[in-house]
């Protein structure tokens, strides 16, 4: 996985996300999820480590909420599989109608699956592709230097912003500013104060960085510029491109025919 061209990895995330949105069938989505999990394993993303625990729990709770909400608040045609109940909260006035059909559950399950697939793809994007990979990848495919520099400065700016944020927050705490045991409006006011300082600091830093680039004689356009980290596309990158585009076209076909790759596969082989 690490030997893949960074652009192949980005394209993979992008196309698989589109495919997840297009595929109509729950079983196809399940297969995509399995593929997603294989990606995560190959990229050696420590999904069950301590650092991810909170994120995973939050994500699971969010998905359970989405599933239950869909079941309780949507009405879909289909066979009633659970129950149908009219809840009257005020006299002679219907407030809420719960109707859970087989289609409700299928759709809720599909939405949840799509959400899980997207979550894994996002993890793969943010952890499996480093900022460095991305910039080298962009430069290798001859994206203009200006764009690569902007992407690079965005990453650099984010890391500087993070450092400055924690320093300014600490400095405020040393002056008696509470961030934990205060009301939400006060908390918002405190964070606004931090961001005002940060904006001023970032303006200054941007100015200095731009002077530093100019002072080193680095032009935005240059015919002589070479690339130190050059990653050419390999055979496996091309194979991934072709495979993903074929899958995309097939998914569009399934969407319009309301078909299923899994069911088609089972029909052929059984």
């Amino acid at each position: 996985m690490r030997k893949l061209h960074p652009i192949s990895k980005i394209l993979m995330v992008f196309l698989l996300s589109i495919i997840a949105l297009i595929l109509p069938n729950m079983f196809d989505l399940l297969v995509l999820l399995v593929f997603d999990i294989i990606l995560i394993i190959l990229a050696k993303i420590p999904l069950f480590s301590k650092g991810f625990r909170k994120l995973i729990i939050f994500f699971l709770l969010a998905n359970i909420t989405i599933f239950i909400s869909w079941c309780l608040f949507s009405v879909e045609e289909g066979e009633i599989i659970f129950f149908e109940k009219y809840i009257v909260l005020a006299e002679d006035k219907l407030i809420w109608h719960i109707l859970i059909t087989d289609q409700t559950v299928f759709i809720a399950f599909s939405i949840t699956l799509r959400s899980i697939i997207m979550f894994f793809l996002m993890l793969f994007f943010f952890i499996g592709i480093s900022d460095r990979d991305l910039i080298h990848g962009l430069r290798s495919i001859k994206i203009p230097f200006t764009i690569c520099l902007i992407v690079n400065l965005t990453f650099r700016g984010l890391s500087m912003f993070q450092q400055e944020y924690s320093t300014v927050k600490e400095a405020m705490m040393t002056r008696g500013v509470e961030f934990e045991h205060v009301s939400i409006p006060q908390k918002i006011r405190n964070f606004i104060s931090i961001f005002i300082v940060l904006i001023v600091l970032m303006f200054k830093k941007t100015e200095d960085m731009s002077a530093s680039i100019e002072a080193r004689g680095i032009p935005l356009r240059s015919k002589n510029r070479t690339i130190y980290h050059y990653f050419p596309f390999k055979k496996k990158d091309y194979m991934i491109f072709i495979g993903l585009f074929m899958l995309l076209i097939f998914s569009i076909y399934l969407r319009y025919t309301n078909g299923s790759f899994v069911l088609l596969f089972l029909r052929i082989f059984t």
């Binding site: 900022d131 690079n152 830093k205 690339i227």
Partner: peptide
């Protein structure tokens, strides 16, 4: 020209890339 604040002179995201940036410009 080396400025006083080293933080804002660090344009790239690794040491190697930082040094390579000027050298690539030289062709």
């Amino acid at each position: 020209l080396v400025f006083q604040d080293p933080e804002t002179q660090f344009i790239m995201i690794t040491v190697e890339d930082e040094i390579a940036l000027g050298l690539e410009t030289l062709g």
